[in-house]
Write a protein that binds this DNA or RNA. Sequence first.
DNA 1: ACTCATAGTGTTATATTATAACGGTTTTAG
DNA 2: CTAAAACCGTTATAATATAACACTATGAGT
Lengths: 171, 171
Amino acid sequence: MSEDNTQHCIAFEQHDHSQCQSQSMRHAKTLCENRRVKLTPRRLQVLTLLTQSHQPMGAYEILDCLNQQVVEMEGKKSQSIAPPIVYRALEFLLAEGLVHRIESKNAFISCDHPGHHYAAQFLICSGCEKVAELDSPDSSLLTKADNLGFKVDHSVVEITGVCRDCNKNGA
Amino acid sequence: MSEDNTQHCIAFEQHDHSQCQSQSMRHAKTLCENRRVKLTPRRLQVLTLLTQSHQPMGAYEILDCLNQQVVEMEGKKSQSIAPPIVYRALEFLLAEGLVHRIESKNAFISCDHPGHHYAAQFLICSGCEKVAELDSPDSSLLTKADNLGFKVDHSVVEITGVCRDCNKNGA
DNA sequence: ACTCATAGTGTTATATTATAACGGTTTTAG
DNA sequence: CTAAAACCGTTATAATATAACACTATGAGT
């Protein structure tokens, strides 16, 4: 077991993001193959956007990006993509645990720690707007629920505040 | 200090709700007096609705209730109340910690445990739709954040699942 | 290869949740 | 008593999300 203070919080740290991103994509592909579910072009496209940004994106922000890409590819074919396209791709990605929903921002973020996506926990900086996924889910809460005879399905843990860097830089 | 297993979860238990409700209202009034902030008729009206229901209500659900009450009081004066009225009352009640926002339901619920509203935690039953506020905030999460140099502002903890009663009754 | 069932996509329309902006009224402080 | 601030009411609109339906691609069994 890893001790409690080796907390990784990659989104708040310097890292080679292009590598981090391609690793996420590779992982997603294997995961989908193993589960015999389809990472279709649309889903891949949305997941790619999310892993690239490494930050939460609203559904309509994603939508805009898709439309942007359509324009780029087709000169000016004008027919634009509609919301359900995005929401459906997100629904799939959420179900497979490849993406999380940040409830307090109505936004979506790619998963950093595939494995315990059922109990993800986030730190949300109100300074830089970065969101970091903690990697050691806190079981005390879930056992507390369990003690009450409550069968846990899904947990939302979102801590808003100011990250270390913003504390330093800000007033 | 109370031991960890004396968890109160009043919303999931039988209780004299009219008493529970009037106690909440009394508490709210004293609190506002002490803070020199105004629990105006509108705010009182919204808080009353929320404490009566003891369950989360959407802003537009609250709005409908208000309009209902207008009709009852005035025969049929037709002029109906608009969303900002409700959102403003809620904004005040949230700021004073008398009400919580349930992010995963876009809904609002009156506070059961004035005192540690900054770190409320909720169990949300998907069977009966009841929501219970836990009374012992879990600090481990907040200290974890602290260790990362993250200055916590507000925490959202919402556990969705099936409560004991629904487990018994359901399949 | 054929055919039906299913899953995925695209499209239109609309529902739901939330806020901006402005003007009037009440309350409060000086 | 007056000026500033807080509160309220109203209109309009923004932002987020889903329902419903038609079409296409995929896949499983024959």
